[in-house]
């Protein structure tokens, strides 16, 4: 061990780590938007009267929650293009598909956490008190207006803690995308670790950046919940 300071010297790779962190956040936000949209759709399916919609969403959440993220990611990134090419081949077409890592990664992570958002939104919509809906109807609001003014805003408040938790798990899951070569935080740390032969330094630095993101998210979650609940008596 030569000098303890050498341990903390990022040898000029600090900027690259920060660039990676920005991309990590971008992937995280994109995936979260996809997850929320899928979650709303899924919750609608689970709560709808249609048997087909219920069966479809039930299958979606069952499969997604039982398969590791890594398998899912590799399946989408490497498997789906091959599958589509094979299918196209059956019909006599030649079709070369190249998914870029950003799209494949954000969509896969969004698809996975959409299943978790589905459960969050389902619980939230079920938690809306019946009396509120009855009151809306009594005041003469029709179905859509009741949804827009009462059901949806109330459900969003109930969904907030659950969504915060999903975000916290999701942002950590984005590290997996480094495996399909997207230059996010984890992969840039790996590149730096390999070229400087200081893996401990760089993976530790990466972990601290993730820790910072988590800490800020926790603070943000607390703030958002307090703000959303400001009209609620404790």
């Amino acid at each position: 061990m030569s000098g303890s300071m050498e341990m903390f010297d990022l040898e000029g790779y600090g900027a690259s780590l920060l660039d990676g962190a920005l991309l990590t956040l971008l992937v995280g936000f994109t995936a979260m938007v996809v997850a929320i949209l899928l979650g709303l759709l899924g919750a609608w399916g689970k709560l709808s009267g249609s048997k087909t919609a219920r069966a479809a969403t039930e299958t979606y959440t069952t499969i997604v929650r039982g398969v590791p993220e890594l398998i899912m990611l590799l399946l989408v990134y490497f498997g789906v293009p091959t599958l589509l090419q094979d299918l196209a081949g059956v019909f006599g077409y030649e079709w070369v598909i190249d998914l870029n890592p950003f799209t494949a990664g954000s969509l896969t992570i969004g698809f996975i956490y959409g299943a978790f958002c589905t459960e969050v939104f389902r619980g939230a919509f079920q938690a809306v008190p019946k009396g509120q809906i009855e009151a809306a109807h009594a005041a003469g609001m029709h179905e859509f207006l009741t949804f827009r003014r009462i059901r949806f805003p109330l459900a969003m408040r109930f969904a907030l803690p659950g969504l915060g938790n999903v975000w916290m798990v999701l942002i950590k899951a984005t590290a997996l995308i480094s495996i399909i070569q997207l230059d996010e935080l984890m992969r840039n740390s790996r590149i730096a670790a390999n070229s400087t032969h200081k893996p401990f330094t760089f993976y530790f630095a990466a972990s601290l950046i993730f820790l910072f993101i988590t800490a800020v998210s926790m603070w943000g979650q607390k703030y958002a919940e307090r703000r959303a609940g400001r009209g609620v008596r404790r």
Binding site: A175, R190, F210
Partner: peptide, 22 residues
């Protein structure tokens, strides 16, 4: 806080590859 706040993949690399530096 550390183990719940960082990705498992980072922890794994830190311990497996990182130990080489130490």
């Amino acid at each position: 806080f550390y183990f719940r706040g960082t990705p498992l993949l980072v922890q794994l690399f830190l311990i497996y590859y990182g130990s080489g530096q130490l």
